[in-house]
Design a protein around this nucleic acid. Structure first.
Length: 736
DNA sequence: CCAATAAGTGTTTTT
DNA sequence: CACTTATTGG
């Protein structure tokens, strides 16, 4: 091959086959760590470089914005030049297309995009307006149903005739919801795909021009596509068949959001001449990690089945640790991190702690900062979901789309302007009745005389803002908004300095964006913000920190050392995974995903008692632990803590788990006692004094009673008095 | 209309 | 626990 890219040197035979194969639709079944992103990237490069495909004719779909940025970067370094190619998420691609061609199918192209918070608020309002009880008719439930209906390409009427839900109220709510969005020119996430498909199926010309434009489509993380997304793909690639999808049925973890693992199975039915290539060589983990995780995932029925192998060798056994409390669990992990970074070759950034829910990150934050372990939280408090950020963004959304009631309500009285509920209601009523943007409404507005001037003030400000939106640079616009709206002053007088700091960060993001996209209009920034729920990057560049991250967010990443915390029945697998969408299997896949992120060392930890939402609850060890090959696990635990599975009451939850039966009352024989590594040497003795408060990894909080010759007598808060040799004890001084 | 306080509530994962 | 929503009194 006369190519400038050394494919043969950088890809194995199966990968090469996948990259070069273009004769028919291609499904690449790529196991964890088998280089699937690499395959997609090289394939795109191959198409451009060696097959003379115009980059503009390629559409590559990724699962997150982060992934798409990464892929773009890799691609550019591979081709050695900037390429104008669409590497986007389904949602951002659809949004962009709707902006461009929406006018062909009755979509006003300055629609704004609402997020889940807004959806929920809107549905709650609808429920209240219907005068039914939000207790029994929970907004979350209806948001969920509406989203699923949209995935299935059903509007309210269609859902009704298809008998989509057994709940009759749902159809009323959905209908009103649809109506509201339509009137206010708003689209939710599901609409982006849904409306595009609808438009395309009613407009042949638009469809064929799009097919002509995207002559080759590649989809990453195919197992996480929903019905609508797959439908869109089919619309665009049938009958041409120029499509390549890459996925792994074992890593499908977004079923709760409509992802259909079956899409992988359907692929070769839908595309009759599809070719399937499996990638089974893993380049990431040692064999032990692969063996253990395969055993776990084997418990899922109906898998396509892959046998991952590695040439990296056996590696170490997994470690399991059970602490008495969540607090001690965090301390144990902190202690291990100390050792790993002290004696071993590891740096902080080699290490990640995974957990099931964001709420679990708190305890690590407090323990790590006390133990001076640098950390960064990925994706938790999502930046663009913070109230102050949404407020500012809403001002701009409103100026771009003055019919946006949600945004208007949001900001009309922030900061306080003397415009209350009644006045806003009147304002909106007229807006909707007349169909005019509200700012054109003059004196015929039915409000208290004392409010007229106040409303006028607001409208005047808003006029100026609209002018700025059109005529100022992005940074200027935001500066204007911060200052002239009175928002920043309001925050400062209210003593919300942290929020003010967040606005600074927003300003940085704005500057960054306008530097990278000098010619982009404001609306593009807003769109990026609306679709990029993941939030403030930039933190990512902070070097050498332990990553704290949810299992869902961990997909696609890898770390030399991984801790999976909270391996408790009810936490992971989460107890709601049964009621909401009875999917223990998905939880198991999530566990599999977590485990296969680890390259060298994998620690699983659990607490006997854990505080969640205010009260402490005791839970058994996750059944996932018992599904692993026990001979590949080194067991450690705090004294007095047992290696047992869930309590009977909790266990009844898992009637549907094939495995629970085997583990009833299982108690491990001959455990290792708490094993402390060769840790703290004399060099690192804590500097304590009599009476100071300390924290001990194992025993918790206490106070120093006496000190002599490196031995401290400590009174622990739980009543026990113990003499400890400082040199060997996991003690730190309490710093609060 | 608004700020402060009380009450209550729901507890996963995210484009 | 931490957050949102409802109520009250100014």
């Amino acid at each position: 091959m006369s190519s400038t890219i050394p494919y043969e040197r950088q890809l194995n035979p199966s990968q090469l086959e996948a990259v070069f194969y273009t004769d028919s639709p291609l499904l690449v079944l790529a196991g964890a760590g088998s280089g699937k992103t690499r395959v997609i990237t090289y394939k795109i490069a191959y198409l451009i470089n060696d097959c003379n495909v115009d980059p503009g004719n390629i559409l590559a779909v990724t699962f997150t914005n982060k992934a798409s940025n990464e892929m773009k970067e890799r691609l550019e370094s591979l081709l050695g030049k900037n390429v104008d190619i669409w590497v986007k998420t389904f949602h951002s691609a659809a949004a962009r297309l709707l902006r461009i061609m929406g006018n062909h199918f009755q979509i006003n192209s300055n629609f704004s995009i609402i997020d889940q918070q807004d959806q929920k608020a809107l549905v709650r309002k609808i429920i209240k307006d219907l005068k039914i009880d939000p207790e029994t008719y929970k907004p979350e439930k209806y948001v969920y149903l509406i989203e699923r209906a949209k995935d299935r390409l059903l509007n309210a009427d269609e859902a009704f005739s298809e008998d989509f839900s057994t709940d009759p109220v749902f159809y009323d709510i959905y209908r009103i919801y649809e109506d509201k969005l339509e009137k206010e020119n708003l689209l939710d996430f599901g609409d982006l795909i849904f409306k595009l498909i609808k438009g395309l199926s009613q407009n042949d010309r638009a469809l064929s021009s799009l097919k002509d434009r995207f002559r080759f489509i590649l989809v990453d993380e195919f197992q996480d596509t929903n019905h609508a997304q797959y439908d869109l793909i089919k619309k665009l690639t049938m009958p041409s068949g120029r499509i390549c999808v890459v996925g792994d049925d074992d890593q499908s973890i977004y079923g709760f959001r409509g992802a259909r693992i079956e899409n992988i199975l359907s692929f070769s039915k839908d595309y009759k001449n599809a070719k399937i290539i499996k990638l089974e060589e893993n380049y990431r983990s040692y064999q032990t990690i692969l063996t253990a995780s395969s055993r776990l995932i084997d418990n899922n029925p109906g898998r396509l089945g892959k046998k991952l192998y590695t040439k990296k060798g056996e590696g170490e056994k997994l470690q399991f640790y059970r602490a008495s409390s969540d607090y001690n669990e965090a301390f144990y992990i902190a202690g291990q991190i100390d050792e790993l970074t002290g004696y071993d070759k590891y740096t902080y950034s080699d290490i990640a702690v995974f957990y099931r829910m964001n709420a679990q990150s708190r305890i690590f934050e407090s323990v790590f900062s006390r133990m001076r372990i640098p950390y960064t939280i990925i994706g938790s408090l999502r930046f663009y979901e913070r109230a102050e950020i949404k407020d500012i963004i809403s001002y701009i959304k409103l100026s771009l789309n003055p019919m946006d009631e949600i945004s208007l309500r949001r900001i009309v009285n922030k900061p306080p302007r003397g415009i209350g509920q009644k006045t806003v209601d009147a304002l909106i009523k007229v807006t909707i009745e007349r169909g005019y943007p509200f700012y054109r409404i003059g004196s015929d507005l039915d409000i208290q005389p004392s409010r007229v001037a106040l409303v006028q003030n607001f409208l005047d400000f808003f006029e100026t803002l609209r002018d700025r939106v059109n005529n100022s640079s992005l940074p200027q616009l935001f500066k204007f908004l911060f200052d002239e709206s009175g928002y920043l002053d309001w925050l400062l007088t209210e003593n919300r300095e942290e929020k003010a700091r967040n606005l600074d960060e927003l300003y940085n993001a704005v500057e960054e964006f306008s530097k990278n996209n000098p010619s982009s209009p404001v609306s593009e920034f807003i769109e990026e913000v609306s679709l990029n729920q993941a939030g403030s990057d930039g933190e990512e560049s902070q070097n050498n920190r332990v990553h704290l991250i949810t299992l869902h967010n961990a997909k696609g990443l890898e770390f030399p050392v991984v801790f999976m915390a909270g391996m408790e029945e009810g936490i992971f697998p989460h107890f709601l995974s049964r009621t909401m969408h009875k999917d223990l299997q998905e939880e198991r896949r999530l566990c599999y995903v977590g485990m296969t992120r680890a390259m060298e060392k994998l620690y699983l930890t659990a607490a006997e008692e854990r505080k969640l939402y205010g009260n402490s609850i005791k839970r058994g060890i996750s059944n996932f632990i018992f599904e692993l090959p026990q001979d590949l696990i080194i067991l450690n635990m705090e004294e007095g803590v047992e290696y047992t599975s869930a309590k009977p009451r909790e266990r009844s939850v898992w009637q549907d788990s094939q495995s629970y039966r085997y583990h009833q009352n299982r108690v491990s024989p001959g455990l290792n006692k708490v094993k402390r590594g060769p840790d703290k040497t004399g060099a690192e003795m804590p500097d304590l004094e009599v009476n100071c408060r300390i924290i001990h990894t194992k025993f918790g909080h206490g106070r120093v009673l006496s000190l002599e010759r490196g031995v401290a007598l400590i009174q622990f808060d739980n009543g026990t008095k113990i003499k400890l040799m400082l040199q060997y004890s996991p003690i730190v001084k309490e710093t609060t």
